Computed example of a mutant assay.
Amino acid sequence: MDYPKSVPSVGLVNGKFVNEDVIAGLPGSLIPATWGNSVTDELLNVVKSAGLEPSETDATQVLQAVKKLSQAGEDKHASDLGAANLYMANYAPAITALKDGLALRFTAGNANTGASTFAPNGLLPKPLVNLALSALRPAEIVGGSVCAVVYSAALDSWVLVYASGGIALSGRLLGVKTFTASGTYVPAVGMKNVLVKMVGGGGGSAGIPATGSNQISVSGGGASGGYAEAWLDSAAIGSSQTITIGSAGASGPIAEGNGGSAGSGGTSSFGSLVSAPGGGGGNGVALLALPGFGLYTGGFPNQAPSGGNIVSTAGAAGSPGICVNGSVLAGHGASSPLGSGGYGSSALSVAAAPGSGYGSGAGGIGNSVNRPGRQGGAGGPGAVIIYEYA
């Protein structure tokens, strides 16, 4: 669309129409029928393309049409004509050059399986990057999804700002995997980072021997397992990691004259990246003659975890068992962040309380006079919990 410069004697001045100047004796410009019709047809095409019926009395139809077409965004959307990881689309009017901030949409024909590119109207393909400005990971685009991209001149790349059905949103929680038995962790598709929480197995409590007419016996609680939290990226994790779950500390057996020592909890680990040792078990206890005072320690924690870059703490010690002039108070098992320690069992004929939940110590146990020997309790097993993020 332009002024009718090629029409002879049209009377343009400086390339534009002018009015007749009677005083100066200058004629006005002519408006050729061909030019007038072409201008009218061009405006009518805009009106009709928006689905409006042309009206001689409505002077707002071109404005209505422009707004409607802008809302539809048909010039900014096209279907993908490429293949997986190689996205291409043709727009009308054609995109002939890339400009900073150019925003386009396309409906993807295929899911991406890794790093990808995008090319409108046959221009050179440019990398597609996510909101974290890194190469796309698998499934950030899924087949049939509507994708919105913006060209960044600084990056010389297309930034994927939206993908329906995909996992392009950086930081989204993909899921939680809880291991209570040893196994293998395989990252979910699209995983970029994980938050690992783990606890080692809790220690058991010692058994106590049978008592005579002037004897008592009492034990402390088991220690809790070490606890660790770590933030790890996909590069450190790789394709998989071996998960080891720390076993529960075994209960201490009954033994004549001395109670049997309890077992320590096992170490939980996430490959070689993070590990949390188990808590110590209670030691065997000797009979105490009355009257008397006795303090029998519970299990002690082992060394601190390794690899915990958020939290890394050794377990807590089990509470001691106490006797004062024949009165006994069994020690409680230590609690962990993922479980409650077993309660001290000083009542007659009540079994030792095991650790409740993950990584907690077993409760101690106590005997007054003339009671049979009693077995200690088992600690709580370890656990590994993995939160996966896109």
Rank of each mutant, 00 (worst) to 15 (best):
S170P: 07
K177Q: 14
T180V: 12
M198Q: 13
N193W: 13
K177M: 14
G171V: 12
L173V: 09
R172T: 10
G175K: 07
T178G: 01
L169V: 15
G200H: 06
L169I: 15
L169Q: 15
M198T: 09
S205P: 08
V196I: 13
M198H: 11
K192H: 12
V189C: 05
V194W: 01
A181P: 05
F179W: 09
G175P: 09
G200M: 10
V186M: 12
G183W: 04
K197C: 03
G175N: 12
Y185P: 04
Y185T: 05
V199F: 00
T178M: 02
V196R: 00
G171L: 08
A181Q: 14
V199Y: 01
L169Y: 14
L173C: 15
A181N: 14
T180W: 03
A206H: 07
Y185W: 13
G202A: 07
G201I: 04
G202R: 00
G203A: 10
A188C: 11
Y185I: 08
V199A: 01
N193Y: 15
G204E: 01
G183S: 12
T180H: 05
G203F: 06
V176C: 06
R172E: 09
G175C: 08
G200W: 03
S182D: 05
A181W: 00
G201L: 02
L169M: 12
V199R: 00
G171E: 11
G204H: 02
S170M: 11
Y185N: 06
A168R: 04
L195A: 14
N193E: 14
K177C: 11
A206S: 14
A168N: 09
L169K: 15
S182T: 11
V186H: 12
V194K: 04
T178I: 08
G190P: 04
G175T: 05
S170E: 13
V194D: 06
T180D: 10
F179A: 01
V196C: 02
G183Q: 11
P187A: 04
L173F: 05
N193M: 13
R172I: 07
L195P: 07
L173S: 15
L195N: 14
K192P: 06
G190K: 01
L173P: 11
R172Q: 11
G202W: 00
G200T: 15
R172Y: 03
V186G: 09
G190H: 03
G200F: 10
L173W: 03
M191Y: 03
G200A: 14
T178H: 02
S182R: 06
S182F: 04
S170C: 10
A206R: 05
G190Q: 03
V196W: 02
L174W: 01
A206M: 08
S182N: 07
G190E: 02
L169W: 11
N193F: 15
G200L: 13
